[in-house]
């Protein structure tokens, strides 16, 4: 019912390489900015474990050694398409879907489109953000809402 979040970027490499780097999430995911550990243990996660196969999981190892199951690969179609159930530490029944497609533009450029749908099911994430972010809430949302309120 609510619109999906859609992000499109072009990356300077082949489709194969764009896919391979994407699924090697541990090499690029900014754990210092976006991890469960940051919210619950107050420090970046130690690592991210990505078993890049259909039906397999993405699991974060937090600073306090707690494991957080982020999501599960539902479609794994090299090098064109990925689909994940993505709940990032919430119970697995409260999941949104993340769909990522890789489209060659030319030999050295690939368009990556990410669609995050069904995210309104994240009722508990609202609570988690409230508890986890506390004082930094204003920092996270201040800019957006300052703009919205000014309008």
């Amino acid at each position: 019912m609510l619109d999906s979040i859609v992000k499109t970027i072009d990356v300077p490499c082949s489709q194969k390489r764009a896919f391979e780097i994407f699924v090697d999430m541990a090499s690029w995911w900014p754990l210092d900015k976006r991890s469960m550990s940051l919210m619950q243990a107050g420090a970046p996660a130690k690592s991210l474990s990505v078993d890049a196969r259909e039906g397999r999981r993405i699991v974060e190892l937090a600073a306090d050694d707690v494991e957080h199951h982020w999501g599960t690969f539902r479609v794994f179609d090299p090098h064109a398409h990925l689909q994940l159930d993505f709940h990032m530490g919430l119970p697995a029944d409260q999941t949104g879907q993340v769909d990522v497609s890789f489209t060659p533009i030319d030999a050295g450029t690939t368009r990556v489109e990410l669609v995050h749908s069904n995210w309104e099911g994240y009722g508990d994430m609202a609570e988690m953000m409230l508890n986890g972010y506390g004082g930094s809430w204003d920092m996270l949302f201040g800019e957006h809402f300052a703009a919205a309120c000014a309008g």
Binding site: I5, C13, I21, H116, M125, A126, M129
Partner: peptide
């Protein structure tokens, strides 16, 4: 609010992904 949070979430993460592609390229 939730949408704004997730919007930024993916901006941050895909930004890091693109940076890694550029680094490897």
């Amino acid at each position: 609010a939730l949408r704004a949070y997730l919007d930024r979430f993916w901006d941050d993460t895909l930004g890091a992904y693109a940076a890694e592609v550029r680094r490897q390229s």
